[in-house]
């Protein structure tokens, strides 16, 4: 049986990979995918806690899975809006490379 520490370790490694991708990659779409990876890593932690700290009746705590449900829904909305922004950005600038988007630079 995998222990709670194993789940937390795997989810932490996945979060770190997503973080590395957000910082290192320059393609805005890949940065977006790495954000999704980080959200999913947090989801794995929530579900693991819901299974390992059971509710009073001995079943997995539904509140943890409820939060995961909300996170997934908000993530879907976020992806839709974010990709629309990327498309608008590409139309006005013809690039999605973050190094070339410098108009806010002082």
């Amino acid at each position: 049986m995998a222990s709670l520490n194993d789940y937390l370790l795997v989810s932490g490694v996945m979060f770190a990979l997503g973080l590395a991708g957000v910082v290192l990659r320059r393609n805005i779409i890949i940065v977006f995918m790495c954000l999704e990876l980080m959200l999913s890593a947090a989801n794995l932690t929530l579900v693991a806690f819901s299974r390992f700290n059971v509710a009073e009746n001995g079943l997995p705590d539904p509140s943890g899975q409820m939060l995961v449900f909300f996170v997934i829904t908000v993530a879907a909305a976020e992806v839709a809006v974010g990709l629309a922004i990327i498309v608008a950005l590409y139309r006005s600038r013809q690039t999605i490379h973050t190094d070339e988007l410098v108009s806010l630079k002082g």
């Binding site: 795997v10 794995l44 449900f69």
Partner: peptide
């Protein structure tokens, strides 16, 4: 990740993960 969710007996979340993501 969805397989891990199902292994944690969170079947609904696992299926949603596959459908949505």
């Amino acid at each position: 990740l969805a397989a891990l969710f199902i292994g944690l007996s969170a079947f609904f979340v696992g299926v949603i993960q596959i459908l949505v993501y």
